Measured scan of single mutants.
Amino acid sequence: MATGGRRGAAAAPLLVAVAALLLGAAGHLYPGEVCPGMDIRNNLTRLHELENCSVIEGHLQILLMFKTRPEDFRDLSFPKLIMITDYLLLFRVYGLESLKDLFPNLTVIRGSRLFFNYALVIFEMVHLKELGLYNLMNITRGSVRIEKNNELCYLATIDWSRILDSVEDNYIVLNKDDNEECGDICPGTAKGKTNCPATVINGQFVERCWTHSHCQKVCPTICKSHGCTAEGLCCHSECLGNCSQPDDPTKCVACRNFYLDGRCVETCPPPYYHFQDWRCVNFSFCQDLHHKCKNSRRQGCHQYVIHNNKCIPECPSGYTMNSSNLLCTPCLGPCPKVCHLLEGEKTIDSVTSAQELRGCTVINGSLIINIRGGNNLAAELEANLGLIEEISGYLKIRRSYALVSLSFFRKLRLIRGETLEIGNYSFYALDNQNLRQLWDWSKHNLTITQGKLFFHYNPKLCLSEIHKMEEVSGTKGRQERNDIALKTNGDQASCENELLKFSYIRTSFDKI
């Protein structure tokens, strides 16, 4: 039985969820670079991206490699990797027998973001014989899940209580170790020597080791999670996991709180800001991140802002960003909400898709409305799209047979046209069989910064309504002859009103 693990408890099935942008060198404390989270699957090609990484700022997932063999891993080693800020997950990587050479110096898994409450997941690794993470000293947050690894031993010899604050939620089941077939031998045991430290858990006094050649490092209890030197002297209180010299914040392997210019500090002093819960960055760093993602459509890219001495992905609820200094300031009234469309555009074809934009005031991208039916549609669209004030790209209304009016965009005031449909149009209306009105132009103002209007096959939309939009939106004169079809717009509506004058002759039985 794995020490510190839980057996036999019912657990939810383990679901495996399925960018080499360097964020800056980590400095003297770390020998390499800070790398983003990685999802490495199918083959070993991307694994080489770990070569210079000291910190993975995010998670590391290595999974679904069915053609790899043990010899493929023999020359692979990433000794610079010290810390993973989120979680480490391995799933069905064939041929991998140990992690001792792959990650010989991995010391800390912070667990800032977890995989279903777990910071370390080893699942269905069919050839893994031992973990071998002999320098792993601290899992700051989260638990361990090690399950269905039929060859995995050296679990009962690990004292997880020396690595985690609590072992109650560890789930370590259905491994070879369960069948008591392992016969784990710690260093020196074969020669009758006791080389590794022994600890007591559940009444068992057991030597602690990761492999037959690597003991588990056990520091004096007084050192807590700070770690200790090879001689057993406690590291500085700002260290986490390990250090090369005692009581020196510049000799830590990793930091308990924050890293700044080669030393570990309790908090980031001005003019620095907390970033990702582990390091200090200056304003320029946060500003660069903001600008890199301002026009990016890459998933996970955030326009970072500053709030409460932190550089964070977005302002919290009730705050909006001051564009001059990136500071989050309290909103006066309802907060603006910028919604970034991942692929640059979004099609609204149902109430469900409209709900995804609920509360958005600025759309960074283009909207395509293609709704053919739905219950209580006008009210639903207004509830979900009615706060949109600005669209950076274009607005396209296409084959939306259920629409009679666009009044559900009740606050839309600006279409920038930074991206144009077919390279020309910022407003595009095609084949809307029941569209009769755009907006009530006596109450609604709309500016279209650039781009043209396109109207074709809107049989109940009168040309007068379209011409009014040209005047109000500032697009009059931009359109070419064929942009607004004269014969297919309003051709099934009563669009022309003329005053009919009647004269009559009164007659009676005795007068003409």
Rank of each mutant, 00 (worst) to 15 (best):
D72L: 03
H307T: 00
E147L: 01
C243W: 00
S323R: 02
I82Y: 14
T329E: 09
N135I: 02
D184A: 06
I82S: 08
D75H: 05
N150H: 08
M83P: 01
L81M: 13
G188I: 11
S77I: 09
P334H: 06
D178H: 13
C293G: 06
K100V: 09
S284F: 02
L90S: 01
C196S: 08
G58A: 00
L63R: 00
I146F: 08
S225W: 14
C53K: 15
I158K: 02
M38G: 12
S244Y: 06
V265R: 11
N202L: 09
L289P: 05
Q61F: 00
P197G: 08
K67V: 05
C215K: 05
L332T: 03
P36I: 09
T85C: 08
F78G: 00
L174T: 13
S284E: 14
P249F: 05
A230S: 13
R145M: 03
N175Y: 02
Y171L: 05
R41G: 04
R263W: 06
T189W: 07
N202S: 08
L63P: 01
L131G: 01
T329N: 09
E266K: 04
N52S: 11
P104T: 01
C255W: 01
A230I: 13
K129N: 06
I163K: 00
C331S: 04
E151Q: 07
P336R: 07
T45E: 15
E49S: 15
E231P: 06
L155V: 14
K176E: 03
T107F: 05
T329K: 09
M38W: 03
Q276L: 11
D247N: 06
I84F: 00
N309L: 08
M125S: 06
I40K: 00
W278C: 02
E314R: 11
Y304F: 14
R297I: 08
D75A: 07
E57S: 12
N135K: 09
S143D: 06
G183R: 08
V265Y: 12
L120H: 01
P70C: 01
P270K: 11
Q287W: 14
I84P: 03
S143A: 12
G203E: 11
G262Q: 15
S143Q: 13
L120M: 11
S323E: 10
L64W: 00
G241C: 08
C153Q: 03
T140P: 05
C215D: 05
L233Y: 05
Q61N: 02
N150Y: 14
N282S: 13
L131T: 14
T221E: 13
M125K: 00
G95T: 01
S98Q: 02
T221R: 15
C328T: 07
M321H: 15
R263T: 08
I109N: 00
S77E: 07
R110M: 14
T194V: 13
K193N: 11
S244P: 06
G142Q: 01
T267R: 03
C264D: 04
L164I: 12
L327K: 15
R298A: 08
R92S: 00
S77W: 05
N105D: 04
H127L: 14
R141M: 02
P330W: 05
D277A: 10
Y134L: 07
G333Y: 15
F275A: 02
R145E: 00
I222G: 11
N52G: 11
Y94N: 02
K176R: 06
E168W: 11
K294W: 10
P249R: 05
T250D: 14
V34S: 04
N322F: 04
I40F: 15
E231F: 13
G183M: 15
K191N: 15
C228V: 01
L114G: 00
F78K: 02
C301Q: 12
N150T: 09
L327D: 02
C228E: 05
S98G: 00
H127R: 05
E207S: 10
Y319W: 03
N322T: 06
S98F: 02
M137S: 13
P70Q: 13
S54L: 08
L240V: 07
R208E: 10
T211M: 00
A190G: 09
N202K: 05
Q204T: 01
P270N: 14
C209F: 02
P104K: 01
T157K: 06
G111S: 00
V206P: 11
R145F: 04
L174A: 11
L289A: 08
N170A: 11
T140H: 05
P330L: 04
T229I: 11
S323P: 09
P70R: 13
T189L: 08
Y273L: 08
N135L: 02
V108H: 14
E49G: 09
Y154H: 15
S225I: 14
L81S: 01
S213M: 11
P104D: 04
V200T: 07
R145V: 02
N295R: 12
E33T: 07
F66L: 00
N309I: 03
D261F: 12
H226R: 11
P334D: 09
P79W: 06
N257Y: 07
G95N: 08
K80P: 01
L120N: 02
Y171G: 13
I122Y: 00
S166P: 14
S317T: 07
H28C: 12
A190F: 11
S237I: 10
V281W: 00
N42E: 01
W160E: 01
C331E: 01
T107Q: 00
S143E: 06
S54G: 03
K129E: 05
N179Q: 09
L90Y: 04
E151A: 13
F116V: 02
F285M: 10
T189G: 09
L131F: 02
R256V: 05
N242W: 05
F275E: 02
C235W: 05
Q287S: 15
V305R: 09
D178A: 14
Y154N: 05
P269I: 07
S323T: 09
C223L: 01
P330M: 04
Y134A: 06
I82P: 00
T194A: 13
I109V: 08
F103Y: 01
W160D: 00
P197L: 04
P246V: 04
M137N: 09
K129M: 06
S112E: 00
I122E: 00
G232W: 02
C280R: 03
M38H: 13
H226E: 05
C286S: 09
E33C: 10
N325T: 05
F258K: 00
H212R: 15
F115N: 01
V93L: 07
P104Q: 00
W160G: 01
V126T: 01
T85P: 00
R298S: 07
C243S: 01
L128V: 02
P313W: 15
V121D: 01
N170W: 04
D72H: 11
Q61T: 01
F73L: 01
M83E: 10
C280H: 01
C286I: 03
H236W: 01
Q276P: 05
N149E: 00
L136M: 00
C243T: 00
P316D: 00
N138G: 05
P70S: 07
A230T: 08
P316A: 04
L155D: 03
E180P: 10
V55W: 08
C53Y: 08
Y259M: 13
I122V: 09
L106K: 00
R41A: 00
D261L: 10
P330F: 09
L131S: 01
L60D: 01
F205P: 14
Y87E: 00
D288I: 12
H290T: 12
T157E: 06
V206Q: 15
L50T: 02
K67R: 13
N175M: 04
V305T: 08
T45L: 12
M38A: 08
L120Q: 00
H214L: 08
W278I: 00
C215P: 08
L164P: 00
Y118Q: 05
N195M: 10
Q216W: 02
I139Q: 01
H214R: 02
L155K: 03
N105T: 06
E207Q: 10
N309G: 13
C293P: 01
I82E: 12
C215R: 09
C196E: 10
C280K: 02
P187I: 10
S161F: 06
R141N: 06
H302Y: 12
E130A: 12
W160K: 10
N257L: 03
A119R: 00
C311S: 03
K100R: 13
E181T: 03
H212F: 08
G183I: 13
C293I: 09
H212Q: 14
I122K: 00
H290W: 14
E49A: 09
G37T: 14
N170V: 13
T329Q: 15
K67W: 05
N170Q: 05
S225H: 14
N43R: 13
D247Y: 11
D178C: 13
K294M: 04
N170Y: 07
C328G: 02
C335P: 02
G111V: 00
L50E: 01
L233C: 02
D184Q: 12
N309K: 09
K193A: 10
I158D: 03
D184S: 12
V34E: 02
W160N: 01
R279V: 05
K310T: 10
N308E: 13
